[in-house]
Structure formats: C-alpha cells, structure tokens
Design a protein around this nucleic acid. Structure first.
Lengths: 216, 216
DNA sequence: TTTTTTCTGTGAATTTCATCACACCAAATT
DNA sequence: AATTTGGTGTGATGAAATTCACAGAAAAAA
C-alpha cells in the first residue's frame, strides 16, 4: 500500500518526529552521505528503528533493504508531506528580547516558512527591518495578518497583553499560535496552540535533576 | 492507601501537569477561593477531572467530596512533592537576547528555584548583575557550577558552541539541561535534557495550521 | 543455483497513558 | 431516619503509542 496519500490521520508526536528526521537528514546529507538506514536515523534522533520506519509510513517514501533510504529523496518526500507547496508566512507579536531571539533562530532556516511581519507597541521598535522581517505598530496587526494571509503567530509579549491580542489573532483567522506567554489562552478546537512556559520547563528540569541526582 | 510516599515512579507527563496545576492554583487562590473541585481545576488546565484526580494521587493530598481540595493545602503539598526543600540553583549559559528573556521570565517567580549565575564570552556582558543574577565570563563556568551546587543549566548560546559547553556541564555534575540550541547533544541516561528547537516548533505549528485551515 | 545476510514494511503484541465507572462518604433533603 | 446528591479515590477498562517479529526482497556468499 505504497504511495497512498489518504487522509491518514497522523499523531502530533509523529509529526514532531518527522520534522526532526528532516532536520537530521539535511545535516546528514551535508556530511556527504547519499543513503541512510532506519537504525542510523533512529540513532541520530534518539529513537528506535522500528519507530522511524513506522513514522515514515505516513510519508510513503520507500526504502531499499540494501541501501536504506535515499537521503535526498526522503528529505524531499518529508518536505512534500510537511510543507505547504506555496509556502507559509508567520507573524511575530512582540519584539522584545525573546522576539528578537526568535527572529534570529528562524532567519533563513526554511524555504517554505518565514516570519514576514512583526509587531510591537514600542514606537522605537517599529518601521524597521530585522532579519528580513518588517516591523509594524501593533495597531496594524489585523490588516497585515489578513493581507499576508498569515495563519501562524508567535506570541512574545507580556502576559498581561496576551489575552486581548490572542482574540485579535483569532478574529483575523490565525490557525496556530506559539504562546511564549505564561498566560493560558482560551482557544477554540480548530486552532492549534502550543504553550512554551519557560518557568514551568525550568521547574520540570529541576524536578528531574533532583530525582536523578538523588539516585546514586 | 493514603499518605504513602513510596518510590512511586511518576511519568514525565504527570509531573508536567502537576507543575501546571500548582501554577493555576496559585493564580486561583489569588482570586480569593479557598477550595476547588477536580472538575474546576481540570477546566483551568484543559484536562479531564479524572486525570486531575489521578495525577493528584501521587502527591497524596486528600480532597473532600463536599468542598473539594483545600487550595492552600494542595499548593503546599504540590510544592512539597515538586520542590527541593532546601532550594535549587540554576545557571544560564549565554546572555544574548534569549538568555535575557529567560532571566526576565524566571525572575522572582519561584521561591525554591533561582537562576543565580549566568555566563557569556562577551566581556561587555559580564561582571554585571541582571535580575539578581551574577554574570561571569564563560571561563568561570565550571568553578561556579560546582561552588553553587548547580544541577540545572539553561543553554542559550550559538549552536556551534553547544557541544563543548555541554561537555563541560556534564563534567561539572549538571543533571538537567534546557537546550535552546538547535544542536543535538549526546547526553547520558542519568541526565535530563529538554530540547527547545524553536524553528521545529514553528514548523509543527505551521503544519497543523495548514491542516486545520484546509479542514472546512 | 542455493543459501545466507540484512534491512524494509507492517500486522500483532505489548506497554503506556487516559478514561470510565463505581464504592464510599458526608452534607442536604425529605 | 431514610433518601438523594455530588464529589473523591481507584480498580477495571479502553485507547493510543511503541515495540516486536516476521514475510518479502535483493545482494552477497557459498
């Protein structure tokens, strides 16, 4: 049942790993390798070979028992599966320390996904261009989201402003939010949200550090 | 089987939620409520009541069928479960945009967990004090990690430096790393690592935005 | 040519995680 | 006093995610 492109519902975890595989493969290709076995990719991703193969079922790119997967082809198949063929634009809300860090991280990293606009309420931060990203006043949020056909937003503003901005984003048709705010946002089912609560992540790390440290 | 404190192995997911519950409860308490039912906490956390109760089994704080859980007591029990009684120190490596954002996020947020030292290789960034955090040159990394008994580190440096720094961290006895670098670090089993790859998170958001947008 | 080797693709088994559903309890109600 | 109500704590159940294990296929070895 190869090359089927049905409405196979793939799990969130699986998508996460496919994105990781692609990244690892791009790096691997740079090292000059043309082929890769599932167990090698598994090692790079810190997973099992069976899981890699299971995940790859979704993209339907066949590997050969002799050579494994052709790296270039697999990257292409993954991109075909993961990316919008036309490309997607994203918006950044909040050009503080975190916002600028995000712009740096994402600059020129992806051919099909770019942060094209950013917003802030601080006049000294707008009307400039950081890493190919146009910076506007927050009042121009909605019109720009709509005119650039933006479906993905990164929230990097103070928690106090998070709710009202998220409402504006929803009204403008945003379909996914990366929330770096500690605020918890009420979001309908048909919008994806990922909360990055840095303090909570640090607490989690501290908890496991303690457990691991006490164990011998 | 109440108030048992065996070596109950609790899942990573569960710990994550317990940390979330505590945060929500602290906020909830500020609104003046003294008691809370599992279904209310579940609503705040966007989970089911059954899961909340199941998670709370690990902390062994009893609720009453009449009033639910006493908020103050539950917060205390959660903190008792999650925190080190003496307190823990964390270190930040890299005082760039992201590093400063992390310092802001974590400043005065937790009584038992503080970022007490930060390191950078840029001389203009060291020998200062940001949000109660001492900033040193990277050469002072190991001695400070050891002398402050630090087991948790936040990596917010360029990817190129990540590997060598992570090796130093491991040698200094670090037990948990929050890795904001896109680099993948080889870490032994007895050290906790959490990778925050912002670009990959954005890709994931974009994938689901696309799926949700095409659906109806 | 036949056998061995090695890896993919995937049903089946297993493990992990989440939900169900109910015994039990105490207040409120009849 | 008996009954109803609503919520906790948890064993039983169900669903989801992962791993096992093997048929199939093609190169390499015999």
């Amino acid at each position: 049942m190869k090359f089927t492109e049905k409405n196979m519902d793939i799990s969130r975890r699986s998508v996460e790993r496919l994105i990781l595989y692609r990244k690892l493969l791009i790096r691997y290709e740079e090292s000059g390798e043309a082929h890769i076995f599932s167990h090698k990719l598994a090692e790079l991703a810190d997973r099992t070979a069976a899981q890699v193969r299971r995940d790859l079922m979704a993209v339907g790119f066949p590997g050969s028992p002799v050579n494994g997967y052709q790296v270039k082809g697999l990257i292409k198949a993954l991109s075909n599966f993961l990316d919008d063929p036309v490309g997607q634009n994203a918006a950044l809300i909040g050009i503080g320390n975190l916002g600028r860090a995000v712009l740096e991280y994402c600059w020129k990293r992806h051919p099909k996904l770019k942060i094209v606009v950013a917003f802030d309420n601080n006049p000294s931060k707008v009307a400039v261009n950081i890493h190919d990203c146009e910076c506007y006043d927050i009042s121009a949020l909605e019109e720009n989201i709509v005119s650039h056909n933006i479906k993905v937003a990164i929230l990097a503003i103070p928690a106090t402003a998070a709710f009202s901005i998220s409402q504006k984003l929803l009204k403008s048709g945003i379909k996914a939010i990366l929330n770096f705010t500690p605020a918890r946002l009420p979001i309908p089912d048909n919008v994806y949200i990922e909360n990055f609560d840095i303090m909570r992540s640090l607490e989690k790390a501290a908890y496991f550090a303690r457990k691991l440290d006490s164990k011998k």
